[in-house]
């Protein structure tokens, strides 16, 4: 394949991840949020796979396969199943209106690019992907903080994770395979535990947000 295609391809995919991240901040229904998350993760799969094909780092294919199996297929399906069994409404609550969250999301992207330029000056070709991943991490944190819906918080955590994963690809060309598998294992178990806790919250409060989870304060 034409090696000159690699850089533009990865940049376009990273751009798609960023755009989907900004749109996720404006979503209020769980299913459409999870669809966007799956799409974002699929772009990540393609980034890892093109790294494998164009730069002959074949272990990235295994990484890509794992991301596909877990983040594109398993976790979204698992969360939809838990939600259906808990019989709670699809609509998520947030402490901000969707339009406002999207504006703040855009501000976060600018902040992310600014931070990347000033903090890590030696990136060269990888600048765009690194800036996207820092912005995604910031978007994930934003979602984690502003959402009251439990699913919104879980997806916020997963966006943060997607950002960090992309950063790993941009900075080091992927960590050692064993480490990546281990990190993946942890993230998956973490997301499953979060979904199970959410299910128990449904059982206790018939809700899927933190309205009834605000008793422990000093």
């Amino acid at each position: 394949m034409n090696p000159q295609l690699y850089r533009p391809l990865v940049d376009v995919l990273a751009g798609l991840m960023l755009v989907s991240g900004v749109f996720m901040l404006g979503r209020v229904r769980v299913r459409s949020l999870l669809r966007l998350f799956a799409a974002q993760s699929f772009a990540l799969v393609l980034i890892a796979a093109s790294g494998a094909v164009f730069e002959a780092r074949w272990h990235l294919l295994i990484t890509a396969g794992l991301v596909f199996a877990i983040k594109v297929v398993f976790l979204p399906l698992f969360m939809v199943t838990v939600m259906a069994r808990g019989r709670v409404g699809e609509r998520m609550t947030s402490s901000m209106r969707p339009a406002l969250s999207m504006f703040i999301a855009l501000a976060m992207v600018i902040l992310g690019f600014y931070l990347t330029t000033s903090l890590i000056p030696t990136l060269g070709d990888n600048f765009f992907v690194a800036a996207v991943s820092i912005s995604l991490a910031l978007l994930g944190l934003l979602m984690l903080m502003t959402r009251k819906g439990l699913y919104g918080q879980i997806v916020g955590f997963l966006i943060l994770e997607n950002g960090i994963f992309t950063l790993g690809l941009a900075l080091t060309g992927g960590m050692p395979l064993l480490v990546e598998v281990g990190v993946f294992f942890d993230v998956t178990i973490g997301a499953i535990l979060m979904a199970l806790l959410t299910y128990r919250v449904h059982g206790e409060t018939r809700r899927a947000d933190t309205e009834n989870l605000e008793t422990l304060i000093d």
Binding site: L144, F157, L160, I164, M194, T210
Partner: peptide
């Protein structure tokens, strides 16, 4: 449940 939720979310984000 509330304690566990805060625990896993805040600590996982921190470790990330």
């Amino acid at each position: 449940l509330e304690a566990a939720w805060k625990y896993i979310l805040v600590c996982s984000a921190g470790i990330a």
